[in-house]
Amino acid sequence: MAIVLDGIVFGLQLSLLAVGLTLIYGLGGVLNLAHGQFAAVAAIIGAVLVGRGHAPLVAVTLAVLAAGLLALFIDRTLMRPVYKLTGEARVLLSLLLTLGAAFLIDGLLIYYHPSTALNLSVPRLGLDLFGVRMRGSSIAASLVAIVVLVGLMLFLRYARFGKAIRSIIQDEVGAQLCGINPGRVRTVVFVLSGLLAGLVAATQAMISSVGSTDGLNFTILALIVTVVGGLGRVSGALVAGLLLGIVYTLASFHIGAFVTFVILLLAAIATILVRPSGILGKVS
């Protein structure tokens, strides 16, 4: 049971990580392979600031904002030419350009901060849940993730801008005819995805350390969750994240860490073969 709960904790992080990525795809049919690097950048900036004596909360807030800023920069520079294309050319260019950006960021981070890592300590209180003692760090990380995810879902469902986002995903032309500017919305969502990735760096840092080399891992995990949840479906990313989190933790515990990744890969492949629109099935 403890493992399942751990799985949920991890799963919440995965959901948080994947939600931004899946939204970007839903809005523009593009994928950001530098997504994990947003988290890595946040981790390093946070770690550096904490190292300089700033209060962790301040450091983390600044770090998350920095991730958002980086996302804004990439959207305004790299994504402009990408959105001018359509269909497969657009996807390809987005993959190649963001891959280049990922390499650039990774190269810089690993070179200048090879061993810097963010570690956030959370007060040692424990809580009993279903008879299992949960560490303060897990609880804190999960709470943040839950609040943000729920907030995001509510926003998408009820806020005017949230509805505008959904409308573009459902029918971009229709949205334009309603006076909604898809480009501007995409930029906002891209920045949001950066902020969310930065936030995951913070929540993960409560549980284990997050360093400069974790960027690619985060990206790939987010990609797998996105695929299993169905590209472009926020609810799918949520469910898939939780599911894969549990699978990951269970497999890790019973079989071993490295086979776990094989299982995740197989999960992605299985989803593509059996339910290409994600585990939640076709959108009605």
């Binding site: 005017r160 509805k163 505008a164 959904r166 409308s167 459902q170 029918d171 032309v173 229709g174 949205a175 005819l177 309603c178 006076g179 909604i180 959108v283 009605s284």
Partner: peptide, 17 residues
């Protein structure tokens, strides 16, 4: 070019955006 997954009410609402 309506929004198929959204209700009539929300489709109308978005018209005013």
């Amino acid at each position: 070019h309506l929004f198929p997954g959204m209700s009539v009410a929300i489709n109308l609402e978005l018209g005013a955006y």
